[in-house]
Simulated assay, not measured.
Amino acid sequence: MYYCCGVTDKGVMPHNEDAMLINGSVMDSGSSEQMLKEPFLAAVSDGVSGERSGELASKMCLELLRDKGFTGGGDLEEKLLSVHHGLADYSESDPETHNMQATICGIAVDGEKRIFTFNVGDSRLYRYRGGRIKQISRDQSLVQLLIDEGAITTEERRTHVHRNIIFPVLGNVKSEPTIDIAELEGGMEYGDLLLLCTDGLSDYVSVLDMEEILEMPKNLKTRLHLLMDKALGNGSKDNITVIAVAYGE
Rank of each mutant, 00 (worst) to 15 (best):
G233T: 05
I243D: 04
V83Q: 12
E149V: 10
A57N: 03
Q140T: 02
C105H: 01
R114C: 11
R132A: 15
K230W: 03
I165P: 03
N219M: 11
G186L: 01
G24T: 14
T222A: 13
H85P: 00
V109N: 02
K10M: 14
C105T: 15
S29M: 13
G150C: 05
G86A: 09
V83G: 02
A19Y: 01
M228D: 05
D89M: 08
K113H: 15
E77Y: 08
H98Q: 08
N119W: 13
C5E: 14
A182T: 12
S206Q: 09
N239E: 07
T198S: 14
H98G: 00
I181R: 04
L220I: 09
I107S: 04
I166F: 02
T154L: 15
G11T: 06
N16D: 06
D94V: 05
V26R: 13
H15V: 05
N16S: 11
S29C: 12
D9F: 08
I147S: 09
G24N: 15
L80D: 02
G72P: 00
A182H: 10
I107N: 07
D18P: 01
K59T: 14
F167P: 00
E156C: 06
I22A: 13
G30K: 05
E189S: 11
Y204L: 09
D199S: 01
V207Y: 14
G106N: 00
R127G: 01
E77Q: 13
A182Q: 15
D229M: 06
E112R: 13
D180A: 13
L226H: 07
V12D: 14
E33M: 11
S29D: 12
D148A: 06
E51P: 00
E92S: 13
L184M: 15
V161T: 09
V207H: 11
M1N: 09
A57R: 01
V26F: 02
S32P: 10
G106Q: 01
D192R: 02
R127W: 10
C197D: 00
G69D: 13
Y190K: 07
E17V: 09
G11W: 12
K221H: 10
C61I: 01
N239S: 05
I115W: 05
E51I: 06
Y190S: 07
S202L: 00
M35K: 08
V12N: 11
C61R: 00
R223H: 10
G233V: 04
D180N: 10
